[in-house]
């Protein structure tokens, strides 16, 4: 590795073309895909673009021999459930791969269960196994704060945290760790584990979606399943979102997905019961407002 670096230095590189690098790396594709495929999330998109340009400039500086230490890329995504953290992590892995910061660009998603063992001596091999699997790519730890359980001092989570920190520091070139979870719990987690806070360079907050954004998401989801709304059902969906949002356990885009799944169920039932003769594709893929309005949410109940 060191020899290679020296060889590159001896080549006379005096200027770089950032635009060309940008095109060649394929980062532009990912960023525009991010823009198009994800609705809302403006602050997240801005942060990712900033990070991408920083990394691109870093690479360019390296080419010119302006050596700086390899940047810390570990991140933390905080936000409510269903705000697109996993989806963005997947895009992030791809982005880092295109920029040449990880070698393979795969995403390994884990939770506490995958890292923490059940008896003494079980945790370390388990955590190491996961870390090895993630090397060359991105390790995404969902609901990371469950690793740390202050109420139980013999909890094995602490051991997993120690190994994690060690590898995050020593194998910085080999893997990128993204921690994700609810904002307030993540803050508490970082407070009690200062080692993590200092090793994570990028903290990104995922805001909740607005009602309009959720409606837009619903339309995209419906279209991707080859169904369609009409004016009335769209209105019903908008009302559904308004009411559902105020209820407990609201999980943004995930709740919308569940609502649509249930609407499809009712639609299938309705189509089956009402069909007397041959029916066409448009009838089969039409979601009527009655399919949505039958939801318990409208009568004061809760959709899980």
């Amino acid at each position: 590795m060191e020899n290679e670096g020296q060889e590159k230095d001896s080549e006379i590189v005096t200027e770089v073309n950032l635009k060309e690098d940008f095109q060649a790396s394929g980062v532009a594709d990912i960023l525009s895909e991010l823009d198009n495929s994800l609705i809302g999330l403006t602050p997240v998109k801005t942060r990712i673009k900033e990070t991408a340009s920083l990394l691109l400039v870093d690479k360019a500086r390296e080419k010119l021999g302006l050596v700086n230490e390899s940047p810390t890329l570990h991140m933390s995504f905080s936000g409510n459930p269903g705000t697109g953290k996993t989806t963005v992590a997947l895009k992030m892995a791809n982005l880092l791969f295109r920029l040449g910061y990880v070698r393979k660009g795969h995403l390994v998603t884990v939770t506490r269960d995958d890292l923490v063992g059940q008896y003494i001596g079980h945790t370390a091999p388990k955590t190491k196994e996961v870390l090895k699997k993630a090397m060359g790519g991105v390790l995404f730890i969902d609901e990371a704060y469950y690793l740390y359980r202050p109420e139980n001092e013999r909890d094995y989570g602490q051991e997993a945290i120690e190994i994690l920190l060690q590898v995050m520091e020593n194998n910085r070139d080999d893997l990128v760790v993204i921690l994700a979870g609810y904002k307030d719990k993540m803050d508490k987690f970082f407070e009690s584990n200062p080692g993590f806070r200092s090793r994570i360079a990028h903290h990104i907050d995922f805001p909740d979606y607005s009602n309009n954004e959720l409606l837009e998401i619903a339309e995209v989801m419906v279209a991707s399943m080859n169904y369609q709304f009409n004016e009335e059902s769209k209105k019903a969906m908008a009302e559904y979102i308004k009411i559902r949002k105020k209820q407990p356990h609201f999980a943004n885009a995930r709740s919308i997905r569940n609502a649509i799944d249930r609407a499809r169920l009712r639609q299938a039932n309705r189509v089956f019961n009402n069909s007397k003769g041959p029916i066409g594709a448009s009838f089969l893929s039409q979601i009527e407002d009655i399919d949505i309005r039958q939801s318990r949410v409208f009568s004061g109940g809760i959709d899980k």
């Binding site: 393979k104 870390l131 090895k132 699997k133 060359g136 590898v167 194998n171 070139d173 080999d174």
Partner: peptide, 8 residues
Amino acid sequence: PDAAAVVY
């Protein structure tokens, strides 16, 4: 998928 695990 990556050799870093083996070197580790």
